[in-house]
Design a protein around this nucleic acid. Structure first.
Lengths: 262, 262
DNA sequence: CGCATATGGTTCAATATGTGAACCACAGCT
DNA sequence: AGCTGTGGTTCACATATTGAACCATATGCG
Protein backbone atom coordinates (compact mmCIF):
# COMPACT_ATOMS: atom_id res chain seq x y z
CA UNK A 1 0.00 0.00 0.00
CA UNK A 2 1.03 3.56 -0.55
CA UNK A 3 2.43 5.31 2.49
CA UNK A 4 0.62 8.16 4.18
CA UNK A 5 3.23 10.55 2.91
CA UNK A 6 2.76 9.30 -0.61
CA UNK A 7 -0.96 9.82 -0.37
CA UNK A 8 -0.55 13.33 0.99
CA UNK A 9 1.87 14.26 -1.76
CA UNK A 10 -0.45 12.73 -4.33
CA UNK A 11 -3.17 14.95 -2.92
CA UNK A 12 -0.92 17.96 -3.38
CA UNK A 13 -0.27 16.83 -6.90
CA UNK A 14 -3.92 16.46 -7.84
CA UNK A 15 -4.65 19.78 -6.17
CA UNK A 16 -1.99 21.29 -8.40
CA UNK A 17 -3.59 19.79 -11.51
CA UNK A 18 -7.04 21.08 -10.71
CA UNK A 19 -7.92 24.12 -12.71
CA UNK A 20 -8.60 26.16 -9.63
CA UNK A 21 -9.23 26.00 -5.91
CA UNK A 22 -11.31 23.04 -4.84
CA UNK A 23 -13.60 22.11 -2.01
CA UNK A 24 -13.09 19.28 0.46
CA UNK A 25 -15.55 16.88 -1.12
CA UNK A 26 -14.09 17.44 -4.58
CA UNK A 27 -10.57 16.86 -3.41
CA UNK A 28 -11.51 13.71 -1.54
CA UNK A 29 -13.22 12.33 -4.63
CA UNK A 30 -10.37 13.24 -6.97
CA UNK A 31 -7.82 11.59 -4.75
CA UNK A 32 -9.97 8.57 -3.98
CA UNK A 33 -9.63 9.34 -0.31
CA UNK A 34 -12.18 9.43 2.43
CA UNK A 35 -13.44 12.89 3.24
CA UNK A 36 -12.13 12.62 6.78
CA UNK A 37 -8.73 11.49 5.57
CA UNK A 38 -8.56 14.18 2.94
CA UNK A 39 -9.35 16.74 5.55
CA UNK A 40 -6.74 15.50 8.00
CA UNK A 41 -4.20 15.67 5.21
CA UNK A 42 -5.27 19.16 4.21
CA UNK A 43 -5.08 20.41 7.77
CA UNK A 44 -1.65 18.91 8.18
CA UNK A 45 -0.46 20.31 4.88
CA UNK A 46 -1.88 23.68 5.78
CA UNK A 47 0.07 23.74 9.04
CA UNK A 48 3.20 23.62 6.97
CA UNK A 49 2.04 26.07 4.35
CA UNK A 50 1.73 23.55 1.55
CA UNK A 51 -1.94 24.30 1.11
CA UNK A 52 -4.06 27.27 2.05
CA UNK A 53 -7.73 27.40 2.75
CA UNK A 54 -9.54 30.47 1.59
CA UNK A 55 -11.18 31.82 4.75
CA UNK A 56 -14.26 32.90 2.80
CA UNK A 57 -14.97 30.17 0.29
CA UNK A 58 -13.36 27.42 2.41
CA UNK A 59 -11.81 26.06 -0.72
CA UNK A 60 -8.25 24.83 -0.77
CA UNK A 61 -5.33 25.79 -2.97
CA UNK A 62 -1.58 25.21 -3.13
CA UNK A 63 0.09 27.26 -0.43
CA UNK A 64 3.31 29.17 -0.38
CA UNK A 65 5.37 26.47 1.32
CA UNK A 66 6.51 25.02 -1.99
CA UNK A 67 7.48 28.50 -3.15
CA UNK A 68 9.94 28.75 -0.27
CA UNK A 69 11.42 25.35 -1.03
CA UNK A 70 11.54 26.13 -4.73
CA UNK A 71 13.57 29.27 -4.13
CA UNK A 72 16.06 27.32 -2.07
CA UNK A 73 16.24 24.59 -4.62
CA UNK A 74 16.79 27.04 -7.45
CA UNK A 75 19.45 28.82 -5.44
CA UNK A 76 21.37 25.59 -4.90
CA UNK A 77 20.59 23.89 -8.14
CA UNK A 78 19.97 26.65 -10.64
CA UNK A 79 18.88 24.53 -13.55
CA UNK A 80 16.59 27.18 -15.00
CA UNK A 81 19.08 29.98 -14.61
CA UNK A 82 21.72 27.98 -16.42
CA UNK A 83 19.44 26.60 -19.10
CA UNK A 84 17.35 29.59 -20.08
CA UNK A 85 20.04 31.45 -22.04
CA UNK A 86 20.61 28.38 -24.18
CA UNK A 87 16.88 27.96 -24.72
CA UNK A 88 16.59 31.58 -25.74
CA UNK A 89 19.45 31.29 -28.20
CA UNK A 90 17.97 28.15 -29.63
CA UNK A 91 14.59 29.82 -30.07
CA UNK A 92 16.20 32.65 -32.00
CA UNK A 93 18.30 30.29 -34.06
CA UNK A 94 15.45 27.99 -34.98
CA UNK A 95 12.68 30.61 -35.04
CA UNK A 96 10.46 27.94 -33.55
CA UNK A 97 9.05 27.40 -30.05
CA UNK A 98 11.62 25.84 -27.76
CA UNK A 99 10.76 24.34 -24.41
CA UNK A 100 12.63 22.85 -21.52
CA UNK A 101 11.36 20.00 -19.37
CA UNK A 102 12.50 18.44 -16.15
CA UNK A 103 11.94 14.99 -14.73
CA UNK A 104 10.34 15.07 -11.32
CA UNK A 105 8.17 12.70 -9.39
CA UNK A 106 8.00 10.16 -12.15
CA UNK A 107 6.86 12.69 -14.72
CA UNK A 108 8.40 14.95 -17.26
CA UNK A 109 7.00 18.45 -16.92
CA UNK A 110 7.56 21.65 -18.83
CA UNK A 111 9.52 24.17 -16.83
CA UNK A 112 10.27 26.86 -19.38
CA UNK A 113 9.09 27.95 -22.82
CA UNK A 114 10.51 30.39 -25.31
CA UNK A 115 7.90 31.13 -27.93
CA UNK A 116 8.71 31.27 -31.59
CA UNK A 117 8.84 34.85 -32.83
CA UNK A 118 6.60 33.87 -35.73
CA UNK A 119 2.88 34.53 -35.77
CA UNK A 120 2.10 30.93 -36.66
CA UNK A 121 3.71 29.00 -33.87
CA UNK A 122 3.26 26.19 -31.42
CA UNK A 123 2.40 27.15 -27.88
CA UNK A 124 3.35 25.08 -24.87
CA UNK A 125 2.26 25.80 -21.31
CA UNK A 126 4.70 25.85 -18.46
CA UNK A 127 3.69 23.07 -16.11
CA UNK A 128 2.20 20.82 -18.76
CA UNK A 129 3.11 17.16 -18.57
CA UNK A 130 4.88 15.33 -21.38
CA UNK A 131 3.91 11.68 -21.86
CA UNK A 132 6.94 9.50 -22.46
CA UNK A 133 5.61 7.70 -25.50
CA UNK A 134 3.93 10.60 -27.31
CA UNK A 135 6.35 13.50 -27.12
CA UNK A 136 9.82 14.15 -28.43
CA UNK A 137 10.94 15.08 -24.92
CA UNK A 138 9.52 11.90 -23.44
CA UNK A 139 11.23 9.77 -26.03
CA UNK A 140 14.54 11.58 -25.72
CA UNK A 141 14.40 11.20 -21.97
CA UNK A 142 13.53 7.54 -22.04
CA UNK A 143 16.08 6.71 -24.72
CA UNK A 144 18.89 7.50 -22.31
CA UNK A 145 17.40 5.80 -19.27
CA UNK A 146 18.45 2.36 -18.03
CA UNK A 147 16.66 -0.55 -19.71
CA UNK A 148 14.58 -1.28 -16.61
CA UNK A 149 12.93 2.13 -16.68
CA UNK A 150 12.15 1.85 -20.36
CA UNK A 151 10.50 -1.50 -19.74
CA UNK A 152 8.48 -0.06 -16.92
CA UNK A 153 7.36 2.97 -18.91
CA UNK A 154 6.27 0.85 -21.86
CA UNK A 155 4.43 -1.57 -19.61
CA UNK A 156 1.86 1.05 -18.69
CA UNK A 157 -1.16 1.65 -20.91
CA UNK A 158 -0.15 4.12 -23.61
CA UNK A 159 -2.76 6.68 -24.49
CA UNK A 160 -3.49 7.43 -28.15
CA UNK A 161 -3.64 11.23 -28.40
CA UNK A 162 -3.86 11.54 -32.18
CA UNK A 163 -4.16 9.21 -35.14
CA UNK A 164 -0.38 9.36 -35.33
CA UNK A 165 0.44 8.49 -31.72
CA UNK A 166 2.58 5.38 -31.62
CA UNK A 167 1.37 3.03 -28.88
CA UNK A 168 3.01 -0.20 -29.96
CA UNK A 169 5.78 -0.97 -27.43
CA UNK A 170 7.85 -2.80 -30.02
CA UNK A 171 7.78 0.09 -32.46
CA UNK A 172 8.53 2.50 -29.63
CA UNK A 173 11.58 0.49 -28.72
CA UNK A 174 13.04 0.84 -32.18
CA UNK A 175 12.27 4.55 -32.06
CA UNK A 176 14.12 4.73 -28.75
CA UNK A 177 17.09 2.91 -30.27
CA UNK A 178 17.15 5.35 -33.14
CA UNK A 179 16.93 8.25 -30.71
CA UNK A 180 19.81 6.92 -28.62
CA UNK A 181 21.93 6.36 -31.72
CA UNK A 182 21.17 9.77 -33.16
CA UNK A 183 21.26 11.75 -29.93
CA UNK A 184 17.86 13.33 -30.44
CA UNK A 185 14.27 12.20 -30.91
CA UNK A 186 11.69 13.11 -33.52
CA UNK A 187 7.97 12.78 -32.93
CA UNK A 188 5.50 13.47 -35.67
CA UNK A 189 2.10 14.59 -34.28
CA UNK A 190 2.33 12.28 -31.30
CA UNK A 191 0.49 14.55 -28.91
CA UNK A 192 -1.17 17.07 -31.19
CA UNK A 193 -2.01 16.96 -34.85
CA UNK A 194 -0.02 19.28 -37.05
CA UNK A 195 2.94 19.53 -34.69
CA UNK A 196 6.32 17.94 -35.17
CA UNK A 197 8.95 17.99 -32.45
CA UNK A 198 12.49 17.04 -31.78
CA UNK A 199 14.22 16.80 -28.43
CA UNK A 200 17.48 15.91 -26.72
CA UNK A 201 18.22 15.13 -23.07
CA UNK A 202 20.16 17.19 -20.58
CA UNK A 203 22.18 14.67 -18.60
CA UNK A 204 24.28 14.35 -15.49
CA UNK A 205 27.97 13.52 -15.83
CA UNK A 206 26.89 9.97 -15.06
CA UNK A 207 24.71 10.02 -18.15
CA UNK A 208 21.33 10.08 -16.41
CA UNK A 209 18.81 12.35 -18.11
CA UNK A 210 17.35 15.06 -15.90
CA UNK A 211 15.24 16.82 -18.52
CA UNK A 212 15.00 17.71 -22.18
CA UNK A 213 15.37 20.54 -24.64
CA UNK A 214 12.71 20.35 -27.33
CA UNK A 215 11.81 22.27 -30.46
CA UNK A 216 8.21 22.20 -31.64
CA UNK A 217 7.24 23.36 -35.10
CA UNK A 218 4.14 23.38 -37.28
CA UNK A 219 4.33 20.37 -39.55
CA UNK A 220 3.30 22.48 -42.52
CA UNK A 221 6.48 24.49 -42.74
CA UNK A 222 9.04 21.78 -42.07
CA UNK A 223 10.72 18.99 -43.96
CA UNK A 224 12.98 16.11 -43.04
CA UNK A 225 16.17 18.08 -43.44
CA UNK A 226 14.94 20.97 -41.32
CA UNK A 227 13.80 18.66 -38.54
CA UNK A 228 17.14 16.94 -38.48
CA UNK A 229 18.88 20.28 -38.28
CA UNK A 230 16.62 21.20 -35.35
CA UNK A 231 17.45 17.91 -33.70
CA UNK A 232 21.17 18.56 -34.01
CA UNK A 233 20.69 22.04 -32.59
CA UNK A 234 18.60 20.75 -29.70
CA UNK A 235 21.21 18.12 -28.91
CA UNK A 236 23.93 20.75 -29.01
CA UNK A 237 21.98 22.99 -26.66
CA UNK A 238 21.13 20.15 -24.30
CA UNK A 239 24.73 19.13 -24.22
CA UNK A 240 25.92 22.67 -23.62
CA UNK A 241 23.50 22.99 -20.71
CA UNK A 242 24.70 19.69 -19.24
CA UNK A 243 28.29 20.83 -19.43
CA UNK A 244 27.71 24.29 -18.09
CA UNK A 245 25.56 22.92 -15.33
CA UNK A 246 27.81 20.19 -14.13
CA UNK A 247 31.05 21.99 -14.73
CA UNK A 248 33.57 20.66 -17.22
CA UNK A 249 33.59 17.15 -15.93
CA UNK A 250 34.00 14.36 -18.43
CA UNK A 251 31.78 15.21 -21.38
CA UNK A 252 29.76 11.98 -21.20
CA UNK A 253 29.99 9.30 -23.85
CA UNK A 254 27.35 8.56 -26.45
CA UNK A 255 26.11 11.98 -27.26
CA UNK A 256 29.37 13.88 -27.11
CA UNK A 257 30.15 13.62 -30.79
CA UNK A 258 27.03 15.58 -31.53
CA UNK A 259 28.35 18.75 -30.05
CA UNK A 260 28.51 21.33 -32.77
CA UNK A 261 31.98 21.93 -34.03
CA UNK A 262 31.88 25.68 -33.66
CA UNK B 1 1.78 13.57 18.53
CA UNK B 2 2.72 14.98 15.18
CA UNK B 3 1.31 13.17 12.19
CA UNK B 4 3.51 11.32 9.76
CA UNK B 5 2.84 13.96 7.16
CA UNK B 6 3.88 16.66 9.57
CA UNK B 7 7.11 14.87 10.30
CA UNK B 8 7.86 14.39 6.64
CA UNK B 9 7.21 18.04 5.89
CA UNK B 10 9.33 19.02 8.86
CA UNK B 11 12.08 16.91 7.38
CA UNK B 12 11.73 18.79 4.11
CA UNK B 13 11.87 22.01 6.04
CA UNK B 14 15.05 21.14 7.90
CA UNK B 15 16.55 19.85 4.69
CA UNK B 16 15.81 23.24 3.19
CA UNK B 17 17.47 25.03 6.09
CA UNK B 18 20.65 22.99 5.86
CA UNK B 19 23.41 24.82 4.10
CA UNK B 20 23.83 22.10 1.52
CA UNK B 21 23.04 18.52 0.67
CA UNK B 22 23.06 16.21 3.64
CA UNK B 23 23.58 12.53 4.32
CA UNK B 24 21.06 10.16 5.82
CA UNK B 25 22.54 10.08 9.31
CA UNK B 26 22.77 13.86 9.46
CA UNK B 27 19.21 14.31 8.36
CA UNK B 28 17.93 11.76 10.86
CA UNK B 29 19.77 13.50 13.67
CA UNK B 30 18.65 16.98 12.66
CA UNK B 31 15.02 15.91 12.50
CA UNK B 32 15.19 13.81 15.66
CA UNK B 33 14.02 10.83 13.67
CA UNK B 34 15.24 7.30 13.57
CA UNK B 35 17.55 6.55 10.70
CA UNK B 36 15.16 3.97 9.31
CA UNK B 37 12.25 6.39 9.54
CA UNK B 38 14.20 9.19 7.96
CA UNK B 39 15.12 6.93 5.13
CA UNK B 40 11.56 5.77 4.53
CA UNK B 41 10.50 9.40 4.41
CA UNK B 42 13.27 10.32 2.04
CA UNK B 43 12.46 7.46 -0.29
CA UNK B 44 8.80 8.40 -0.27
CA UNK B 45 9.56 12.07 -0.84
CA UNK B 46 11.92 11.15 -3.62
CA UNK B 47 9.21 9.17 -5.41
CA UNK B 48 7.28 12.38 -5.69
CA UNK B 49 10.22 14.55 -6.61
CA UNK B 50 10.33 16.48 -3.35
CA UNK B 51 13.84 15.33 -2.61
CA UNK B 52 16.61 14.01 -4.82
CA UNK B 53 19.47 11.77 -3.93
CA UNK B 54 22.72 12.45 -5.65
CA UNK B 55 23.60 9.15 -7.31
CA UNK B 56 27.30 9.64 -6.56
CA UNK B 57 27.53 11.11 -3.09
CA UNK B 58 24.24 9.54 -1.90
CA UNK B 59 23.43 12.79 -0.20
CA UNK B 60 19.96 14.25 -0.32
CA UNK B 61 18.70 17.63 -1.46
CA UNK B 62 15.41 19.37 -2.16
CA UNK B 63 13.99 18.08 -5.42
CA UNK B 64 12.16 19.79 -8.20
CA UNK B 65 8.67 18.81 -7.07
CA UNK B 66 8.25 22.00 -5.06
CA UNK B 67 9.40 24.01 -8.06
CA UNK B 68 6.52 22.63 -10.09
CA UNK B 69 4.02 23.41 -7.36
CA UNK B 70 5.51 26.84 -6.85
CA UNK B 71 5.08 27.71 -10.49
CA UNK B 72 1.46 26.68 -10.39
CA UNK B 73 0.89 28.58 -7.19
CA UNK B 74 2.46 31.70 -8.60
CA UNK B 75 0.44 31.37 -11.79
CA UNK B 76 -2.81 31.18 -9.86
CA UNK B 77 -1.93 33.46 -7.03
CA UNK B 78 0.63 35.86 -8.43
CA UNK B 79 1.36 37.66 -5.21
CA UNK B 80 4.96 38.39 -6.08
CA UNK B 81 4.20 39.51 -9.61
CA UNK B 82 1.62 41.96 -8.35
CA UNK B 83 3.57 43.16 -5.34
CA UNK B 84 7.08 43.60 -6.72
CA UNK B 85 6.41 46.79 -8.72
CA UNK B 86 5.05 48.46 -5.60
CA UNK B 87 8.01 47.27 -3.56
CA UNK B 88 10.40 48.62 -6.18
CA UNK B 89 8.67 51.99 -6.24
CA UNK B 90 8.70 52.14 -2.49
CA UNK B 91 12.42 51.34 -2.40
CA UNK B 92 13.12 54.19 -4.79
CA UNK B 93 10.86 56.56 -2.95
CA UNK B 94 12.27 55.80 0.49
CA UNK B 95 15.85 55.07 -0.60
CA UNK B 96 15.85 52.38 2.06
CA UNK B 97 15.67 48.59 1.91
CA UNK B 98 12.11 47.40 1.40
CA UNK B 99 11.05 43.81 1.88
CA UNK B 100 7.92 41.81 1.39
CA UNK B 101 6.88 38.92 3.60
CA UNK B 102 4.22 36.28 3.37
CA UNK B 103 2.51 34.23 6.04
CA UNK B 104 2.91 30.52 5.46
CA UNK B 105 2.98 27.50 7.68
CA UNK B 106 2.57 29.48 10.86
CA UNK B 107 5.52 31.70 10.05
CA UNK B 108 6.14 34.98 8.37
CA UNK B 109 8.92 34.63 5.84
CA UNK B 110 10.64 37.07 3.55
CA UNK B 111 9.72 36.51 -0.08
CA UNK B 112 11.24 39.52 -1.78
CA UNK B 113 13.75 42.25 -1.05
CA UNK B 114 14.59 45.46 -2.85
CA UNK B 115 17.85 46.80 -1.53
CA UNK B 116 18.36 50.42 -0.71
CA UNK B 117 20.46 52.13 -3.39
CA UNK B 118 22.65 53.60 -0.66
CA UNK B 119 25.98 52.13 0.34
CA UNK B 120 25.06 52.06 3.98
CA UNK B 121 21.95 49.96 4.02
CA UNK B 122 20.14 47.16 5.74
CA UNK B 123 20.29 43.78 4.06
CA UNK B 124 17.58 41.19 4.40
CA UNK B 125 17.76 37.68 3.00
CA UNK B 126 14.96 36.18 1.00
CA UNK B 127 13.68 33.21 2.97
CA UNK B 128 14.55 34.60 6.39
CA UNK B 129 11.90 34.22 9.07
CA UNK B 130 10.39 37.20 10.86
CA UNK B 131 9.47 36.65 14.52
CA UNK B 132 6.09 38.14 15.35
CA UNK B 133 7.15 40.02 18.45
CA UNK B 134 10.49 41.36 17.31
CA UNK B 135 9.96 42.67 13.79
CA UNK B 136 7.86 45.41 12.29
CA UNK B 137 6.40 42.92 9.85
CA UNK B 138 5.48 40.49 12.61
CA UNK B 139 3.79 43.20 14.61
CA UNK B 140 1.95 44.62 11.63
CA UNK B 141 0.74 41.15 10.73
CA UNK B 142 -0.38 40.28 14.21
CA UNK B 143 -2.06 43.61 14.81
CA UNK B 144 -4.65 42.81 12.18
CA UNK B 145 -5.20 39.20 13.19
CA UNK B 146 -8.16 38.01 15.26
CA UNK B 147 -7.69 38.29 19.04
CA UNK B 148 -7.28 34.53 19.43
CA UNK B 149 -4.22 34.42 17.22
CA UNK B 150 -2.62 37.32 19.02
CA UNK B 151 -3.17 35.54 22.33
CA UNK B 152 -1.64 32.39 20.96
CA UNK B 153 1.37 34.16 19.51
CA UNK B 154 2.06 35.99 22.77
CA UNK B 155 1.67 32.82 24.80
CA UNK B 156 4.78 31.29 23.27
CA UNK B 157 8.19 32.09 24.78
CA UNK B 158 9.43 35.32 23.21
CA UNK B 159 13.10 35.39 22.38
CA UNK B 160 15.14 38.45 23.29
CA UNK B 161 17.27 39.20 20.23
CA UNK B 162 18.72 42.51 21.35
CA UNK B 163 18.64 44.68 24.46
CA UNK B 164 15.74 46.47 22.86
CA UNK B 165 13.56 43.48 22.00
CA UNK B 166 10.22 43.82 23.76
CA UNK B 167 9.20 40.50 25.29
CA UNK B 168 6.55 41.66 27.74
CA UNK B 169 3.18 40.46 26.40
CA UNK B 170 1.35 43.37 28.00
CA UNK B 171 3.57 45.95 26.39
CA UNK B 172 3.38 44.12 23.09
CA UNK B 173 -0.40 44.30 23.27
CA UNK B 174 -0.35 48.06 23.56
CA UNK B 175 2.10 48.21 20.67
CA UNK B 176 -0.30 46.07 18.65
CA UNK B 177 -3.15 48.40 19.51
CA UNK B 178 -1.12 51.38 18.39
CA UNK B 179 -0.20 49.56 15.19
CA UNK B 180 -3.82 48.72 14.45
CA UNK B 181 -4.91 52.29 15.11
CA UNK B 182 -2.13 53.79 13.01
CA UNK B 183 -2.17 51.26 10.18
CA UNK B 184 1.53 50.50 10.41
CA UNK B 185 4.00 49.20 12.99
CA UNK B 186 7.32 50.59 14.14
CA UNK B 187 10.00 48.42 15.72
CA UNK B 188 13.17 49.91 17.09
CA UNK B 189 16.06 47.42 17.05
CA UNK B 190 13.81 44.50 17.89
CA UNK B 191 15.76 41.93 15.90
CA UNK B 192 19.05 43.64 15.22
CA UNK B 193 20.76 46.54 16.91
CA UNK B 194 20.99 49.72 14.86
CA UNK B 195 18.01 48.89 12.64
CA UNK B 196 14.62 50.51 12.80
CA UNK B 197 11.72 49.22 10.75
CA UNK B 198 8.16 49.99 9.90
CA UNK B 199 5.65 47.70 8.25
CA UNK B 200 2.05 47.43 7.11
CA UNK B 201 -0.02 44.38 6.23
CA UNK B 202 -1.31 43.31 2.85
CA UNK B 203 -4.79 42.02 3.49
CA UNK B 204 -7.60 40.09 1.87
CA UNK B 205 -10.88 41.88 1.20
CA UNK B 206 -12.05 40.17 4.38
CA UNK B 207 -9.32 41.99 6.27
CA UNK B 208 -7.08 39.03 7.01
CA UNK B 209 -3.38 39.80 6.67
CA UNK B 210 -1.50 37.61 4.20
CA UNK B 211 1.86 39.32 4.45
CA UNK B 212 3.60 42.61 5.03
CA UNK B 213 5.47 45.40 3.32
CA UNK B 214 8.32 46.63 5.48
CA UNK B 215 10.96 49.34 5.29
CA UNK B 216 14.19 48.83 7.20
CA UNK B 217 16.60 51.70 7.80
CA UNK B 218 19.77 52.31 9.78
CA UNK B 219 18.76 53.95 13.03
CA UNK B 220 21.55 56.45 12.66
CA UNK B 221 20.06 58.33 9.75
CA UNK B 222 16.43 58.41 10.79
CA UNK B 223 14.21 60.37 13.11
CA UNK B 224 10.64 60.07 14.33
CA UNK B 225 9.18 62.11 11.51
CA UNK B 226 11.01 60.12 8.82
CA UNK B 227 9.92 56.81 10.30
CA UNK B 228 6.34 57.93 10.40
CA UNK B 229 6.56 59.02 6.79
CA UNK B 230 7.99 55.56 5.91
CA UNK B 231 5.14 53.97 7.81
CA UNK B 232 2.57 55.91 5.87
CA UNK B 233 4.30 54.99 2.61
CA UNK B 234 4.47 51.31 3.57
CA UNK B 235 0.79 51.32 4.47
CA UNK B 236 -0.05 52.98 1.18
CA UNK B 237 1.97 50.40 -0.75
CA UNK B 238 0.51 47.50 1.21
CA UNK B 239 -2.93 48.82 0.60
CA UNK B 240 -2.29 49.34 -3.07
CA UNK B 241 -1.05 45.75 -3.36
CA UNK B 242 -4.12 44.46 -1.55
CA UNK B 243 -6.40 46.33 -3.90
CA UNK B 244 -4.60 45.42 -7.07
CA UNK B 245 -4.35 41.85 -5.97
CA UNK B 246 -7.91 41.31 -4.97
CA UNK B 247 -9.43 43.53 -7.62
CA UNK B 248 -11.40 46.59 -6.71
CA UNK B 249 -13.59 44.94 -4.16
CA UNK B 250 -14.59 46.96 -1.17
CA UNK B 251 -11.50 48.85 0.00
CA UNK B 252 -11.54 47.28 3.49
CA UNK B 253 -12.31 49.36 6.56
CA UNK B 254 -9.77 50.40 9.13
CA UNK B 255 -6.76 51.09 7.03
CA UNK B 256 -8.46 52.66 4.03
CA UNK B 257 -8.08 56.23 5.18
CA UNK B 258 -4.31 55.80 5.07
CA UNK B 259 -4.20 55.57 1.32
CA UNK B 260 -2.19 58.46 0.03
CA UNK B 261 -4.23 61.18 -1.53
CA UNK B 262 -2.23 61.43 -4.70
C1' DC C 1 47.60 -4.97 8.17
C1' DG C 2 43.65 -5.46 11.48
C1' DC C 3 40.72 -3.16 14.42
C1' DA C 4 37.65 0.73 15.21
C1' DT C 5 34.25 3.62 13.69
C1' DA C 6 32.08 5.98 10.48
C1' DT C 7 28.66 5.82 6.74
C1' DG C 8 24.05 4.17 4.02
C1' DG C 9 20.74 0.88 4.14
C1' DT C 10 17.42 -3.19 5.86
C1' DT C 11 14.42 -6.17 8.90
C1' DC C 12 10.37 -7.29 11.75
C1' DA C 13 7.64 -7.57 16.10
C1' DA C 14 5.21 -4.09 18.85
C1' DT C 15 2.21 -0.42 18.81
C1' DA C 16 1.17 4.11 17.73
C1' DT C 17 -1.11 5.86 13.83
C1' DG C 18 -4.28 6.38 10.27
C1' DT C 19 -8.79 5.01 8.66
C1' DG C 20 -13.74 5.67 7.23
C1' DA C 21 -18.76 4.78 8.16
C1' DA C 22 -21.67 7.31 10.47
C1' DC C 23 -22.30 11.40 12.49
C1' DC C 24 -23.29 16.84 13.07
C1' DA C 25 -24.24 21.65 11.56
C1' DC C 26 -25.25 24.65 8.24
C1' DA C 27 -26.84 26.58 3.74
C1' DG C 28 -29.48 26.77 -0.33
C1' DC C 29 -33.40 25.01 -2.78
C1' DT C 30 -38.43 23.01 -3.76
C1' DA D 1 -41.45 21.66 6.47
C1' DG D 2 -38.27 18.46 4.09
C1' DC D 3 -34.34 17.40 0.71
C1' DT D 4 -29.58 17.64 -0.88
C1' DG D 5 -25.62 19.62 -1.09
C1' DT D 6 -21.70 21.48 1.33
C1' DG D 7 -17.63 21.39 5.28
C1' DG D 8 -16.34 19.27 9.29
C1' DT D 9 -15.98 15.72 13.39
C1' DT D 10 -16.00 11.26 16.05
C1' DC D 11 -14.20 6.75 17.59
C1' DA D 12 -13.73 1.60 17.35
C1' DC D 13 -10.96 -0.83 14.38
C1' DA D 14 -7.16 -2.04 11.28
C1' DT D 15 -2.81 -1.20 9.46
C1' DA D 16 0.95 1.59 8.49
C1' DT D 17 4.72 3.43 11.18
C1' DT D 18 8.31 2.69 14.35
C1' DG D 19 13.22 1.80 15.99
C1' DA D 20 16.58 -1.44 18.11
C1' DA D 21 19.34 -4.44 16.16
C1' DC D 22 21.03 -5.87 12.06
C1' DC D 23 24.14 -5.85 7.45
C1' DA D 24 27.60 -4.11 4.07
C1' DT D 25 30.80 -1.11 2.85
C1' DA D 26 34.24 2.65 3.42
C1' DT D 27 37.46 5.41 5.70
C1' DG D 28 40.74 6.39 9.48
C1' DC D 29 44.62 4.88 12.24
C1' DG D 30 48.24 2.72 15.19
Amino acid sequence: MMSTIGKALALLDTLSRLEKEAGLTDIARQCALDKATARRFLVELEKHGFVEQDPDTRRYRIGSGPVRLARIREARFPFLRVAIPFIKTLAELSTETVHLSEFSGGQLSTIHVEDSPRAHRITVDVGSLLPFHATASGLAFLAFCPRVEIDEALKKPLEKFTDYTVTDPQLLRTMLDETAARGFSIIDQGLEAGVISTAAPVRTPGGRPIGCVAIAAPLSRTNTAAIHEFGVQAAAAANAISEKYYGSERPMGTIAKLRRTD
